[in-house]
Amino acid sequence: MASNVQSPTQTDTVFRTENLDIYYGDFKAVRDVNIDIQKNQITAFIGPSGCGKSTVLRCFNRLNDLIKSFHINGTIYYHGQDLYAPDIDPVEVRRQIGMVFQQPNPFPKTIYDNIAYGPRLLGFKGDMDELVETSLRKAAIWEDVKDKLKALGTDLSGGQQQRLCIARAIAVKPEVILMDEPCSALDPISTLKIEDLMQELKQDYTIVIVTHNMQQASRASDRTAFFNVETNEKGKRTGYIVEYEPTEVLFQSPREKATQEYVSGRFG
């Protein structure tokens, strides 16, 4: 249960990937991913578009299973368990590893029902009103919506919708929150709010965020992985990790020339 997840005896390495290759059919989308993701840290994935950073992120909660041709080689460990072992239930995985998407995607239901959706699925028996309030508070949107919990989630502004989606993810008490470019559809003010929120959340959760915004990665994250993409002779593009370091190291003294160019080019 969720309470076990929070126990202090567990490992600090939440995810470890070993020689992870990701395929769509015959097409190798990402190769040779070997990274550890640490507990209660914010890990950022950056890189040019098409480098497979979102694809890797979606492997961590098996959301790629919804794509028929998808399969992997190599292993992803979640606290030492092979996430893709045949006896693992992807539905259970997604419960413990939450996700916030690029486009805010509230259900066409009330704000209250959006939050209560996940807990209800899991047969939550406690005080739902309290859980809804706590989740909304943690996502820093309680003040905005406390008087209109019966309004439709889809009627909120884009930034509010995204914080609602974060609150919805928190409500099922996951250990990890995966964020797939959560601010790309938002204005700068909403973006800053979400970044502040991430700093709050990392006390309780492990966060992995994909972003194409360099400043966001350097501001908000503890460790950063830089992805790049190579094109083979047939014109197929395969992504790989160039460098994975603590964020200040990666931005200030990168080992690889490609990282240097990418990081400075954007800041230029």
């Binding site: 909660n61 939450g98 259900f107 699925l121």
Partner: peptide, 27 residues
């Protein structure tokens, strides 16, 4: 019903039929 709504539900750990009955059919 847009795919992003489906993904949101799967992402919260709903099964296929929970998603169908609680999100897609109401929508």
């Amino acid at each position: 019903v847009p795919g992003k709504i489906r993904q949101a539900s799967y992402g919260l750990g709903a099964t296929r039929w929970e998603t169908i009955f609680k999100v897609i059919i109401p929508a």
